[in-house]
Design a protein around this nucleic acid. Structure first.
Lengths: 139, 139
DNA sequence: GTTAGTGCAAATCCTTTGCAAGCCG
DNA sequence: CGGCTTGCAAAGGATTTGCACTAAC
């Protein structure tokens, strides 16, 4: 898990032309460092504990702003209707624990996709998404 | 696109212990034959045209029943918050046209995934999901 | 006649939006 | 001052649910 100092967070925001407001910094602290594939709801629960005056709308606004700034990615997975945010903005895949819903990041080294003949006639391939699903091995 | 006769549809339902009611048969006709990755909404729009008395709740109930019976699969894709139904119940992957939202089925021949080292320690791999995303080639 | 299926409307969940008020440059 | 940000509450879209009604064994 990456860990940025408050100063580093502020710097990253400024770099991307996002004003580092009093609400955005704590949200970033959680979302970019501490959290692991959180939902908006997870973020709200965390801010409720730590920064009680922060509103749900601001959570959503900030998350959207961060996604727009390229500091965060949003995913939608088959197992949940909620949007899931990922501070890992490098291309990667996921492994889903079907029991707990926990997600593991998989880098390109772990998964190889060969999609040569898969792109329909007249189309250009843009991105590849892979989700492996499984569960804890029973023994 | 598969095409079943009304009799075949009825038989498939009965085989899976799903009562072939007056509402379910038309829904199946659309969903199992005519439709291409429809949403619940698509189904409702179709029944509104062809079987006006059919309620939204029945559409959802029927879709859920069909999924439970293994006649239909449901998917959730990153580009849409709606559930998408697929009459192709054999394992396969998808190509998404990011502009139109249209989905193409890809069989295992088209895409090869090597996931050897990707499964986290202590986990067993269950299924693999792949979505390729792209758009029409500009020329 | 009992059980399963249907229709309707209300409810729920997640997310977005409108708008008035606050803050910062 | 003027624009961006915030908070609140209301609205919105997708799906589910409660319940009375109907239909099929």
């Amino acid at each position: 898990m990456k860990c940025f100092t408050p100063a580093e967070i502020e710097q990253r925001l400024v770099e991307r032309s996002v004003l580092p407001t009093a609400q955005r910094i704590p949200i970033c602290r959680y979302v970019l460092c501490e959290a692991d594939h959180p939902t908006a709801d997870d973020v709200k629960r965390w801010t409720d504990k730590n920064f009680p005056k922060l509103s749900l709308a601001t959570v959503y606004n900030t998350l959207k702003t961060l996604v727009g700034a390229g500091l965060l990615r949003e995913f939608r997975f088959p197992h949940s209707e909620k949007v899931i945010y990922d501070s890992n903005v490098v291309d990667h895949f996921h492994f889903l624990d079907e029991e707990s819903g926990k997600l593991f990041d998989l880098s390109g080294e772990h998964v190889e996709v060969r999609a040569k003949s898969a792109v329909p006639e007249g189309y250009t391939l843009d991105t590849i998404e892979v989700v492996l699903r499984g569960r804890k091995t029973k023994r």
